[in-house]
């Protein structure tokens, strides 16, 4: 029961350069919690002081923005991909 979390360039120095991390499936909050357990420095980059996702981070589960799903309560099913993407990109 494994999921893949994709790490953006900006955070790879904190994952020893790894672009993808395999973790257990479950709720998004649990998946990202496990990620912060493995790489403690990631925690404060992904979450704000209140434990919410930071304002300038977008998280996608199976290509869908979690704000259109259940946010941190979104279920991340086996084999799915979680992408962490900086919000500031694109358009004008």
């Amino acid at each position: 029961m494994s999921v893949t979390v994709r790490i953006p360039t900006q955070l790879r120095p904190l994952t020893n350069g790894s672009p993808e991390i395999a973790l257990q499936s479950g709720k998004l909050s649990a998946v990202l919690g496990e990620l912060s357990g493995v790489y403690p420095e990631l925690k404060s980059r992904i979450f704000d002081d209140e434990g919410k996702l930071r304002r300038f981070i977008n998280v996608f589960v199976s290509d869908e923005d979690v704000r259109f799903l259940d946010g941190l309560d979104t279920e991340v099913a086996d084999q799915s991909v979680v992408s962490i993407v900086p919000a500031v990109a694109g358009g004008i």
């Binding site: 953006p8 992408s83 694109g90």
Partner: peptide, 18 residues
């Protein structure tokens, strides 16, 4: 997909194609 999908993909490609 829509533009937001394109944009998200490009943000990811930008990480892979520096």
């Amino acid at each position: 997909g829509n533009y937001d999908d394109v944009n998200r993909l490009c943000a990811e490609i930008a990480s892979e194609e520096p």
